[in-house]
Design a protein around this nucleic acid. Structure first.
Lengths: 155, 155
DNA sequence: CCTAGAGTCCGTAGTCGCTACGGAGTCAAC
DNA sequence: GTTGACTCCGTAGCGACTACGGACTCTAGG
């Protein structure tokens, strides 16, 4: 199976498949006489496993661990369970962060009557907190965590 | 005010301030005789505005727009409102995505009794969906959006 | 057989929002 | 005078891709 077919069958972008191979998440694919990569059904299934893991929000590093665990025949359930639970905790924390943002933003938007308001409540909110001495200093670390990747969530 | 003081006062990391200047989000700071950057209270306030915007999950690009809007004396509320609303919609979409992940993960974890289960439910879930022909192909786009930045949310 | 167009190869650079590093210069206190 | 803290600058790294360019190969139509 050629790479474009593997891409279609797995739901991974063609360039992503090459990327996974490059970083060692996938084993190096067999090559045909022409040098083209040749994928087996098993490899496509592994790609789907990865895609599914990404869908569930696992990092590539975590997926690599999961793949390694899945390959062991004795199935060490505890490790998998721990990884999944830890991951769930992270997701829940992010949901809380985002909800906090959403709530705050909702309030701010609601406070703005729209139209030609002299002191815009939204900018006002941003500026008011800016005038408080270093209130946001505490949140600096949190900011990095909470917000990372947001912009790519909209591209 | 020196850069380290501005960093403390604004809650932004020192290197982040330099970064903001480099990418043009902040105007180039005045320099003392020694070449050190010298910040005014107004500039620190602008930094706090930025930090606050980041806290609310705005991208630097959006913050630049907000800063530009805030500088206009006639306060064009509509633009700000539109930006904030669009941003809120994005945040809410992300919350839904994360909740979907969390629900699915919770179910999967619950299905695993733990210990020495022969067929681990968590890996099973990942693998079962991997065996379905290209079900995840549809979600490829969504995956990129939903998950971006997750790993940095844990670092 | 020739040619056009599609597919594949590879390496590299770009994305976002920082963070970290190294080597040099500067400043304040002892 | 010397130490240690601070600042300067440019560059590289992170994660998870995505895009690009130039070379090669394959396939279908004329």
């Amino acid at each position: 199976m050629k790479i474009s077919e593997a891409a279609t069958a797995s739901g991974c972008h063609l360039e992503t498949i090459r990327y996974y191979e490059r970083i060692g998440l996938l084993p190096k694919a067999a090559r045909g006489d022409n040098g083209y990569r040749d994928y087996t059904a098993a490899e496509v299934q592994q790609l789907r496993f990865i895609a599914r893991g990404r869908d569930l929000g696992f990092s590539l590093e975590e997926i690599q661990s999961l793949l390694a665990l899945a390959e062991q025949t004795n199935m060490p359930c505890g490790d998998v369970d721990r990884l999944a639970r830890a991951h769930l905790v992270c997701i829940q924390a992010r949901i809380r962060e985002l909800r906090r943002m959403a709530d705050e933003l909702t309030l701010t938007i609601a406070a703005c009557a729209g139209g030609a308001c002299g002191g815009c409540a939204i900018l006002g909110n941003l500026q008011a907190s800016a005038e408080l001495p270093a209130a946001s200093a505490v949140t600096a670390k949190r900011r990095q965590r909470a917000v990372a990747g947001r912009s790519s969530a909209r591209s």
